[in-house]
Design a protein around this nucleic acid. Structure first.
Ligand SMILES: [Mn+2]
Ligand SMILES: [Mn+2]
Ligand SMILES: [Zn+2]
Ligand SMILES: [Zn+2]
Lengths: 130, 130
DNA sequence: TCTAAAATTAGATCTATTCTAAAAACCGTG
DNA sequence: CACGGTTTTTAGAATAGATCTAATTTTAGA
């Protein structure tokens, strides 16, 4: 996740990439900004946004949109998501955990290249107490 | 789609609801604002946003997030979406056009209540010319 | 070490949305 | 039909997320 592409390595970029590598919770840009600033307290928002955009363009992270928020996903493998309606957490769901989606009889002449499934419900922690 | 819920009917609300009823393209708030202002040129953004939020709270429209934009969906039936990667259009995909999604072996103890599928690719109009 | 190119910064700007307070419209009642 | 309390609308201010800018600093190769 750290290969350069005509880019220079800097402490800011290193921290952003490291934070994303460990992130399991689809952080927002602001969460990345806060985390990086705990280590390097003068890091600017512009650098965080620029770096996130470059990583995205380089295909090293993805964006996830949920509940009107833009979040970043360091997992670039083909996978799905589970969203808890109570706490809002977004968990990865392995591609193979969901059986092949069979789409047929689509109205137009679309060419389907990929798909993703969003499962919604209550996560384990938000389950009512029996 | 026009039932009141303790709300008064006004020309602005009527136009917003009518526009949404006919909308097939998941309009943004600004597109609703523009369309309504062609008929009633002094309608304010605040009214458009307020009305959209009420309709959403009343379950008469839904929100769709794609490419970082908030869009509104007058189709409240259970359905999926197709997103064209070239032109960005979002088409409804009937729930029955997609075979049942079988999810198994999920990591946690989530309770799945619903799911939706986003199909991605090229729409008919954006298909390369053979 | 030197230097050109690239990156960072603070703050300005832009865009989408919400908030606010005053004016206008609505509608049941007299 | 006019009244008056309540609801709604409006313009513009305020807020939040994201991008842009121009000046300064850093990087990394020679
Ligand atoms: Mn993910
Ligand atoms: Mn739809
Ligand atoms: Zn939860
Ligand atoms: Zn298209």
């Amino acid at each position: 996740m750290t290969r350069a592409r005509g880019l220079k390595m800097t402490p800011q970029r290193r921290l952003i990439v490291e934070y994303l590598r460990g992130a399991v919770n689809h952080p927002t840009a602001d969460e990345v900004f806060s985390a990086v600033n705990e280590q390097l307290p003068i890091t600017s928002r512009a650098t965080v946004y620029n770096t996130l955009n470059w990583l995205k363009a380089a295909g090293m992270i993805r964006e996830v949109f949920e509940a009107g928020n833009v979040r970043f996903d360091p997992n670039t493998t083909n996978h799905h998501h589970f969203v808890c309606r109570a706490c809002g957490r977004i968990d990865d769901v392995d591609f193979d955990s969901v059986g092949d989606v069979a789409f047929c009889a689509l109205p137009g002449r679309q060419e389907i290249e990929s798909y993703d499934v969003t499962l919604r419900g209550l996560c384990a922690a938000c389950q009512p107490v029996a």
